[in-house]
Amino acid sequence: MAPRFPSFLNTIQRNYRQKTKERTGSSSATTRRNSVMEDDDAFEDAVSDSEGTPLSAIADAFEELSRLLKSRGPNFDLDLKPFCDACSLVSVLFGSLGIAFKFAEMEYVSKVQDLEDASEDYGTLNNILDYDVEMDTVKSAGSLSRNLRRVRQGLDLIRALFQNFLSADERSLKEAAQTAYTKVCAPYHTWAIRTAVSAGMCALPTREQLLERLNETEESAEREMRRYINGSHPVIEYIDKLYISRNISLDW
């Protein structure tokens, strides 16, 4: 079994506070936009300065995003760059699940990359939705709003998988993955994709193999998975509210 790795949350938070202090201490008259950009830069630097397992890095990143959302209030306009930085870390989890989630991995990675490429032009999550609403392309194939919706589903899929993985009555990875996929993604996938995913479930690694791939023990994995579950929930909820506030349904 892989050695136990400690949590690096304190390092992340300490780095984040120091980066924020260095950027904001020189001026007391920054605009709201500059303040948001400083928060985003501090977020990126704090996460990049940390060390740990892939799972702990993901948990750190989403805890920081969650902290930003909670501290800034319901009207906070989250920048695409730190959001994409955090989301890109999740791709390693799809890769660890093998062929069953290969389609989800390919779709997720490409959508995150599209959003990251658009971050300089659009800036924030609100802006991409406003643009697509104006152009009537929210649900169009390839639109950034559709990409964001699919990335959100990827985050929710991992969250649901972790919840099932840790539950008392669904200890096997196969059961956890099947239940998570059926609930989160299957309703929006074609029959062909659902069939391919179902067939690939037989090739999932065992619980022990997954922990070894992630370099975690049972104890450390549970800690980091719970941190991700708690940290990702406000982010997923925030994204949903962006659509709901524009009278866009979530059933797609």
Rank of each mutant, 00 (worst) to 15 (best):
V90G: 05
D130N: 12
G95W: 02
Y108S: 00
F94W: 07
S110N: 07
M106H: 14
L129W: 04
A100T: 03
Y131F: 14
E120F: 15
R149G: 09
A86P: 02
F101Q: 09
A100P: 04
V112P: 01
V112S: 01
I158Y: 00
T124E: 08
A118M: 07
D117Y: 09
V151W: 00
Y131G: 12
L125W: 05
R152F: 10
K139W: 10
S91I: 09
C87N: 11
G154Y: 00
Q113W: 05
G123V: 06
S140K: 15
R146K: 14
Y108W: 02
K139R: 14
I158Q: 00
T137H: 06
S145Y: 03
K139I: 08
L155I: 06
M135K: 14
L93D: 02
G98C: 05
N147M: 09
F101Y: 10
S96I: 02
D117P: 10
L89K: 14
A104I: 04
S88F: 06
L144H: 02
D130T: 12
K102T: 07
S145K: 05
V138H: 06
V92A: 03
D136Y: 11
E134N: 11
M106R: 12
S140P: 11
L93H: 05
D114Q: 14
F94T: 00
S119V: 08
Y108V: 00
M135P: 12
V151P: 01
D130A: 12
S110Y: 04
R150K: 11
F94S: 00
A104E: 06
N126Y: 15
L89H: 10
L93S: 03
E107N: 04
I158S: 00
L115V: 01
G98I: 04
A100F: 02
Q113L: 09
D121F: 15
L148C: 07
M135A: 13
K102A: 08
I158M: 03
G98N: 10
M135N: 15
L125I: 09
S119Q: 14
L148H: 04
Y122T: 10
E120K: 15
V138E: 04
D132Y: 05
A100I: 01
V109L: 04
N147A: 10
A100C: 06
D121Y: 15
V109I: 07
D132S: 07
A100M: 06
S140Q: 15
A118F: 05
N127K: 13
R149Y: 14
E105Q: 06
I128L: 09
K111N: 10
G154P: 01
V112M: 02
L115W: 01
L144C: 05
D156A: 15
Y122C: 09
R149H: 13
C87V: 11
K111E: 10
G98R: 05
V133D: 07
G123L: 08
R150T: 08
G98H: 09
N127T: 15
A100D: 04
Q153M: 13
L97H: 00
A100Q: 03
G95L: 07
S143L: 04
S96H: 07
Q113I: 07
G123S: 10
E120C: 15
E105K: 02
R149V: 10
R150Q: 09
L155G: 06
S88R: 11
G142V: 02
F103G: 03
L129S: 05
L144K: 03
L93I: 10
R146S: 14
R149P: 09
L144Q: 04
A86N: 05
L155P: 07
L93T: 03
L155C: 11
